[in-house]
Amino acid sequence: MSKLKSRFSAGSRLKFAWLPVVASVAVLGLSEQVFTQAGQRTMWAPRLAGVTPGEIQVLPVQGNVHMLVGAGANITVQTGNDGVLMVDTGTAAMSPKVIAAMRSISGKPLRYIVNTTDRADHTGGNSAIADIGETIPFREANYTAGPQGALDIGRASIISYYTVMHRMSAPTGKAVAAPETGWPDNTYSIAQKRLYFNDEPVVIQHINANSDGNSVVLFRKSDVVSAGDMLDLTGYPIIDLAGGGTIETMVTGLNHLIDIVVPRANAAGGTMVVPGHGRIADHAEVVYYRDMVTIVRDRVQDLIKKGMTLEQVKAARPTRDWDGRYGKDTGDWTTSMFVEAVYQSLKKPA
């Protein structure tokens, strides 16, 4: 006790005279934290979560619809009590990850796959992914009746416009572009095919755009359109001249897409659009993209009228105001290839 007392003797109190001052400073410091409510400093510019290479990102779109990113082309997944409907399947290599991502949304059976185009980044997963699905039989299988009584219900049905099937397959004796197990088995050849699935109308429309086989899928209750490569927010449109696409069909196709995408008040929201590549979009993105494609067409047309050759047109850089946004110098589809496709579309044979 005496020792304790001696610790707080008059002399030692002088040593601790700074304590109130320290306490005051500490309280002031705390008061700042309390009143500013400042959290962690925002990183400038903030890092936005992209897709980790080799992984799939699952993003809700609207209603019953999700978008899977990271498997090549974007994949649209509609889910409900009837099962799962998938628009495009990504690359073959990513199929296991795509299946796992789909399962994270719904455990129901995969019933339908719709291919919006024949390109491998949209259809490469057909074979492996269709295999885990099952169709709903219209009758019980009767194996005692021989082959006619059997039903192949152990796969999801793959829907596409008929020309997609033609491009993925080949005449007998010719090399095929895709394995037979990935070919569409449910094609259509008229303006549209309709389903009623997961309590909403699903309208599959044929629109001739960057090829002659484009389909867009309208989920009418969710109010989502899966547009495939008609809308590529990561680059200039891939115009497949050999596959029946031209710059004119691209412009016409985008105008059709604008007609079925309805914005809410003040040109925002409303119908959501899943593009073939890039972020979730709405009416405005489709209109901006249409504007860009149309203006480039008009410029190239004007240069052709002036008698310019392809090389001269490329040198004139008719896309220069969008190159910073959509242009690419390397990869499968460069700015140069786009300009050439526009030129070839418009150049009348001599």
């Binding site: 936005l48 979560a49 992209g50 897709v51 990102q57 993003l59 978008m67 990113v69 003040n266 040109a267 925002a268 929201g269 959501m272 890039g278 972020r279 979730i280 979009a281 709405d282 993105e285």
Partner: peptide, 9 residues
């Protein structure tokens, strides 16, 4: 949000 989500006005 992630970079692939909707952009607005």
């Amino acid at each position: 949000p992630p970079e692939n989500t909707l952009h607005t006005w």
